[in-house]
Design a protein around this nucleic acid. Structure first.
Length: 516
RNA sequence: GGUGGGUUCGUCUAACGGUUAGGACUCAAGAUUUUCAUUCUUGCAAUAGGGGUUCGAUUCCCCUACCCACUACCA
């Protein structure tokens, strides 16, 4: 049994968005489940669309998610350029492999599966426009190639001269006429296409001495001994071409199996998820923050405070399910449970609410120590002077009320700073004449409580108030208002115990002063 | 336009051809509580439409509608 080898092959034309991360994740899960290898290959054969920083972004994003490639990227997060035992197929950047593709393209020409085409971009453009004007579509195929400028129509001498002197020619694949191509997709099953609906795709471009996606992809997958190709649905229409290419090269025996993943759709309306949807609807579309050349900032899941585990979990369940009702999965559990058979065929609309829910689940699973460390990392300066155990206790109390750790300060600032203002509407609601005379008594009672623990405070205060038949709601909320500054937060006893008697005394005095 | 893919609650999804069509998110109501939240309970809510095949169809087939992708010397 051959070792499973799958690859993620992004194009560095911008930041990887969540759909791309999901594709990478499914590749990773599928590889790891069989104890196979997850390989990264950079498909940068479009010199026009190269975006600086995109490659680093992709690698950083995968790292953050915990799905680092086994092959193609070194320990420092750099794409491997020279072969080694662990990275035998280097370089893993197609622009650096450019030397190997031309001979494969020419091999196809020699075997009669491809031909040289000398049409200029302008000529083809005109043909397309003319066709469009007549409400038809120009296709470079069996029907038209015979009347175009290529090595099939021009005399051999002219062809060799053009190859020699011109810099704008291409090598095109010669799609056979009227053949039914039968393909199999691991997710979708059998698919049939007639070759007449296909066009003669460009395989190699003389202008920049680079192959196009189709050639580079097939050659590299073959050379790198890829066993399964798991990629986005946008590639399904070119699967017949890829089958034909494997056949032309005589590689059908080792041809990888294919799986095409459905796309991620925008949460509202129609169409696939795009960069703009995130800005429009207020949720990140990218794993990490990205700033483009124009200086526009796109937020990231990491910067928004998501745990990578939560992010991976939610992505995994967008288009796949385990067949059970389990929803929370660690990466290891996902590796165990994943299967391409249970990947959904239809596109999934992204749901920002559910995304938050996932993070909330992970937030609650964190240990107090982890939360303390996070809180300190986030709010460093504001927490100076407070012990880890105090901060930890605060975290314990507030974690049920938060979706993200970056909400901690907003939910707990009063544990670190006495309130300087008091919410006016709460004052008018609770600071009534019937309780005003009671508060000094309660104040003294609190200051005499010993031990000053949550349970004892709760019990004693409760007894005091009920025994005197005082209005529980007003008294308690007033105390909360004195301690917090507004009507929110955990139980009053919790707050008092944590704050300590002295601080509670001070805050009550201060509030009374303010109200007097 | 052509080709391919897809269609179960608002969303993510489950359901050997036989279920009161299940779960989760959201939302609503109730319970608990000293506030807010949590928690718990309950509720709202779906098989795109039409034909077949079958004793029986969410499930298989066909048609229609709608959605998506592709239709570049981009990936």
């Amino acid at each position: 049994m051959k070792k499973r080898r799958v690859r993620f092959a992004p194009s560095p034309t911008g930041p990887l968005h969540i759909g791309g991360v999901r594709t990478a994740l499914y590749n990773y899960l599928y590889a790891k489940q069989a104890g196979g290898d997850f390989i990264l290959r950079i498909e940068d054969t479009d010199s026009q669309r190269f975006v600086p920083g995109a490659e680093e972004y992709i690698i950083d994003a995968l790292r953050w998610c915990g799905i680092t490639p086994d092959e193609g990227v070194d320990e420092n997060g750099k794409v491997v350029e020279t072969p080694s035992e662990r990275h035998p197929h280097a370089p893993y950047r197609q622009s650096q492999r450019r030397g190997i593709y031309r001979k494969y393209a020419e091999e196809l020409v020699e075997k009669g599966y491809a031909y040289y085409a000398f049409d200029t971009a302008e000529e083809l453009d005109t043909l397309r426009k003319n066709a469009e004007a007549q409400k038809s579509t120009f296709t470079y195929n069996y029907a038209t190639r015979g009347s175009l400028r290529n090595s099939l129509t021009l005399p051999a001498s002219e062809v060799s001269q053009l190859i020699e002197n011109e810099t704008h020619w291409t090598i095109r694949f010669k799609i056979p006429e009227n053949r039914t191509i039968r393909m199999n997709d691991l997710i979708r099953g059998e698919i049939e296409v007639n070759s007449n609906t296909l066009d003669d795709k460009v395989l190699w471009k003389r202008i920049d001495e680079l192959p196009t996606y189709h050639l580079a992809n097939i050659v590299d997958d073959h050379l790198m001994e890829i066993t399964e190709v798991v990629r986005g649905e946008e590639w399904l229409p070119s699967l017949p071409l890829h089958y034909l290419l494997y056949e032309a090269f005589g590689w059908q025996e080792s041809r990888p199996r294919f799986a095409h993943l459905s796309l991620l759709l925008k949460p509202d309306g129609k169409g696939k998820l795009s960069k703009r949807d995130g800005d429009r609807l207020g949720f990140p579309v990218f794993p990490l923050k990205w700033i483009n050349a124009e200086g526009e900032v796109s937020r990231g899941y990491r910067e928004d405070g998501y745990y990578p585990q939560a992010f991976v979990n939610l992505l995994a369940l967008l288009g796949w399910n385990p067949g059970t009702e389990q929803e929370i999965f660690s990466l290891e559990e996902l590796v165990q449970a994943f299967s391409l058979e249970r990947v959904i065929k239809s596109g999934a609309k992204f749901n920002p609410d559910k995304a938050k829910w996932f993070n909330e689940q992970y937030l609650r699973m964190q240990t107090t120590e982890e939360l303390t460390a996070e809180f300190k990392a986030l709010e460093g300066g504001r927490l100076v002077g407070f012990s880890d155990s105090y901060i930890g206790s605060v975290c314990e109390i507030i974690k049920e009320r938060a979706h993200f750790s970056n909400e901690f300060w907003g939910l707990s600032s009063y544990f670190f700073r006495a309130p300087s203002t008091y919410d006016p509407s709460s004052i008018s609601k609770y600071w009534k004449d019937d309780v005003k005379p009671i508060i000094p008594q309660v104040h003294i009672f609190i200051c005499n409580l010993e031990p000053f623990t949550k349970e004892h405070i709760e019990e004693q205060l409760h007894t005091l108030i009920t025994d005197n038949q005082w209005p529980m709601g007003k008294v308690m909320n007033l105390l909360r208002l004195f301690l917090v500054g507004e009507s929110k937060g955990p139980s009053v006893a919790d707050i008092m115990a944590l704050l300590g008697k002295e601080e509670v005394d001070n805050r009550i005095k201060r509030a009374l002063n303010h109200l007097a």
